Simulated scan of single mutants.
Amino acid sequence: MTLFKYIINPSPIGEITIIWRKKPKFQIEEIILSRPDKSSTQIAEEKYEQEGKLPINKKSKQLNNVLKELDNYFKEKDAKFSLEYLNLEKFTPFQRKVLETEFKTKKGTINTYKDLAKAAGSPKAYRSVGTALSKNPYPIIIPCHRTVKSDRTIGGFGGVSEGLESKKILLELDGLMIQGKKVVGNSPIIALDKTSQTKLV
């Protein structure tokens, strides 16, 4: 399997590296965000060391479509992302359900880990929801930054504490207000499950 990379730099959250492949069909393998201590390029080189140095390639109509929508998102325009190019088959059925449900969370809205667990069909599995989101290889496209704790604190991002600043920036790009580590104001909660929806007042 030949993998390629494409680097977005700059962006509001720093350098971003997209790992993708052409065959047997176009597919995004992973979207890697930078951390304060390490660039996305460094993370990619370490993670895919066995693949050797990944060539930089932008020669793909599908990749250009993804880049266009990411650019729209960062410019605070409507972005029309799709699950079509993502490989969700590598996840457990529960993890896949969580990610597919999270994909439906619209810009300008948020949900909680508990609400997402219920919408995914496992109301008591909110800790497992957090684990599934921490393993999300497609941040922004599957907007795991839009899931927060029930007390409005923004929670984790990408499975590392260093990701909180990026999560804050992404939520602000969505039009939400953040003070410290909490969502404030009249930020709406998406009605993933209208019968049991956490209220933020």
Score class of each variant (00 low, 15 high):
G180C: 05
I142N: 10
L63C: 03
L70S: 05
N65S: 13
A132M: 13
R146Q: 12
S187G: 14
S60K: 13
L83R: 05
P139C: 10
R35S: 14
T105H: 01
Q50H: 14
K167N: 06
K75Y: 02
A120N: 00
G14S: 04
N65E: 15
N87Y: 00
D78S: 13
I142E: 06
N111H: 02
E29C: 09
W20T: 13
G155W: 12
D193A: 00
D71R: 08
A44Y: 07
K107L: 12
Y138E: 06
A117M: 01
E15C: 03
I28D: 07
K58L: 14
L3Q: 14
A119K: 00
M177Q: 15
L88Y: 00
L63Q: 03
L86T: 01
I110R: 01
I154M: 12
K135Y: 15
G158N: 10
N186D: 15
T92G: 07
V66T: 09
L63R: 05
F103Y: 08
N186H: 14
S122Q: 12
T109A: 00
G163E: 02
G155E: 10
Q27W: 02
K104T: 14
R152I: 08
K80H: 15
R127W: 15
G163T: 02
L3A: 11
N65V: 09
K77S: 11
T17C: 03
I178H: 02
F103K: 10
L200D: 11
F81W: 05
Y113S: 05
E49G: 00
N9Y: 06
Q95H: 15
I141R: 02
G121M: 02
G14Q: 01
K23Y: 10
S39P: 06
Y85N: 09
E51C: 11
M177W: 13
L171H: 09
Q42M: 14
F94P: 04
V66G: 11
L192W: 04
T195H: 11
G14C: 03
L170P: 01
K135R: 15
F91W: 06
P188V: 07
K77D: 09
N87M: 03
P93C: 02
T153A: 03
L3T: 10
S150W: 02
I32K: 08
P24S: 03
T101A: 00
E162D: 10
T101H: 01
S122H: 06
V66I: 15
E51G: 01
P137K: 12
G52K: 05
E69G: 13
G163S: 04
I18W: 02
Q179W: 09
D115G: 06
K68Y: 09
N72H: 14
N136P: 15
